[in-house]
Amino acid sequence: MPGGRYTLAGYESWLGHDALYSEPEERPHPVMAFVAAQRGLGVTVAELFRMWGTEMSDGPMLTESTLEFPGEFRADTEYDVRGTVTSVVRKSGRTLGVFDLVTARFEVVEPGGDTPVAVVTNTYALPRREATE
């Protein structure tokens, strides 16, 4: 994945708390690390799924997510965001038919640093209507 940079502005952190049913405070809501991973990747969500051969209209779904905080994610701080696909597994089911479970790891890292302050690992179910198992 291309990767990019992301800064959570202070007012966005406030809005994030409010949108996530949390009392605003100086530290961002931990789920804003998910926002950082998604916004800082260098491609939009739709472009990301398109890279994986799926359109938004196909109904890609988030099935599992892990947030990890080896460091402290802060507002008004610029971070590098790096993403890698760690696994692709083909499955089939009654609801989705044939689909791929794609797991991607997104690291939110201080520029020039190696250790991420936050890691978001998401698994998406991507329908493959044209495929057979």
């Binding site: 049913y21 949390s22 931990p30 789920v31 892990t66 947030l67 905080f69």
Partner: peptide, 24 residues
């Protein structure tokens, strides 16, 4: 997911979330 984080933050107001894994 944030609602589960809110649960944990209310239970441990001085705590720091290190990891959350969820199945949707």
């Amino acid at each position: 997911m944030a609602m589960l984080v809110n649960l944990l933050r209310a239970a441990y107001p001085r705590g720091r979330l290190r990891r959350l894994t969820v199945q949707l």
